[in-house]
Write a protein that binds this DNA or RNA. Structure first.
Lengths: 265, 265
DNA sequence: GAGCATTTGTCCGTATGTATT
DNA sequence: CAATACATACGGACAAATGCT
């Protein structure tokens, strides 16, 4: 692990110390690190920047450096990414707030996906999700107004869009398509995500249809802060096992071999 | 885009200039940038580091800084990620070399996935793939020796494992399961990928079965260099459209809205 | 192979700006 | 307001890798 460079060695020492400490706890300041390892502040800073790049710490100007933890978001063909449920299982707390609601003409791309004429009216919701108090996900959701004429105060009060669509729209949304990639968000989106412009972040796009009719009722783009979440996708292939799908252990965090496959130079 | 800081502005200028230039072409040295923008080398360096973080450039000590391009690897339920085909379509050249072949007892995790007793013999192949001459992917492939008794010289000569398994093993591999995530590779793997230790990289794990018998014949872990590839996953939901799957335009690089969804503060 | 210029990698010390507490 | 801590910046220095002569 230890590189030849000074700051990399310091980063490794700090990374090891951080590993056992609770999320949010404070890390030594650049000044303290410089003193402790007898290096300049520039070297200490490089070490902490290394930790930040590894997503192990979070830095706040004027406040300090803090231990960071991420939450796994698992998507599969069967289960959608229920953020609140996932976070709850991981022992955390998720909170979602609606940041913006507006009625807009559907852009061409979304219109195509939703199988509506471009320019037809739709509601655009912008929702920010916080995990343990820290902004983690920004979701942009398009709902054609023929599905939901009015988005009332409910969207602000009810955390589940499914519930709203079921009760007010009379439809049962089922995910029909989903794509996971990485993309550079537009400046407005980066601002709402509070990430730096020009940086790539994981993006989950999805389309939901009404189970009964097959009508496209919703499409969404979820922008994930890479320092707060880790997106995992499970795919079935064309080959399907006979009978119900087997329960495969998916613990750990690095695949079947947990990143520790035997191998040699 | 332009931050208030000096180096960020320089980075944006350079990023714009780089955009039209061919992959591999040389970028001005730190010293030249410092002279051109009348800043210290440290500031010029920070700007170039910013470009490196955005994966727009590749830096080689002693040689210089070069324009970088990445290749999209698209996985979906129907089509696997044929690296060579994907790269060819993008106008590039892919080359795969077998770095290591050995017969080893199956570790527990791989044994479970392959539905074999732990410790039963299997071949472990390590293959490096180069895109346009630059190392981009490291694949570790486990093949139980009951599927392939001997891995001859064929694995070094034939680029397609499918072909080898079909001809020598008498099986027709079909992907049955796949998981896409990010993980920190073990030091040995990081070394073969030529990435820095401790850094997360996209990981594609998959299991293939014989189409006829359903026998698990192969599992693999593909570690992707994030600066060389971009992994995209498409998922179908439980809801399936009647008839053949529609052909959705998947051009661009940022989803239906290409990262340019309308939105406001 | 040896030598040299170029270029990035790392480090030092210092200074100022800015956000948080 | 003051103290703290990170953000940015300057100038200089040497190390290490590369590419050319």
């Amino acid at each position: 692990m230890a590189n030849n460079s000074r700051y990399a060695g310091i980063a490794d020492v700090l990374a090891a110390e951080i590993a056992d400490r609770p999320a949010g706890s404070r890390v030594a300041s650049e000044h303290e690190i410089a003193g402790r390892f007898h290096v300049s502040r520039a070297a200490a800073r490089a070490a902490v920047q290394e930790l930040e790049q590894r997503l192990l710490v979070r830095r706040v100007r004027g406040a300090g450096t803090f231990v960071n933890r991420r939450t796994d978001l698992v998507l599969s063909r069967r289960q959608g990414p229920s953020l609140h449920e996932t976070v709850r299982q991981a022992g955390g707390v998720a909170r979602t707030v609606v940041r913006d609601v507006r009625l807009l003409p559907l852009p061409a791309a979304e219109a195509g996906l939703l199988e509506r004429p471009p320019g037809s009216p739709a509601h655009l919701l912008a929702r920010q999700s916080y995990i343990d108090g820290l902004l983690s996900v920004l979701a942009l959701i398009w709902i054609p107004s023929d599905v939901l004429t009015e988005v009332g105060a409910a969207v602000h009060a009810v955390e589940s869009l499914d519930t709203i669509l079921r009760q007010m729209g009379g439809v049962e949304p089922v995910r029909a398509w989903c794509r996971v990639s990485c993309a550079v968000p537009a400046p407005e989106i980066a601002a709402q995500l509070e990430t730096e412009c020009g940086r790539e972040v994981p993006l989950i796009e999805s389309l939901s249809r009404d189970r009964a009719t097959g009508l496209a009722v919703l499409c969404s783009s979820m922008w994930n802060r890479p320092d707060r979440t880790r997106v995992v996708v499970e795919l079935d292939g064309p080959w399907q096992p006979p009978g119900p799908p087997r329960d495969r252990e998916r613990g750990g965090g690095g695949g079947p071999c947990g990143g520790r496959c035997p191998l040699g130079g």
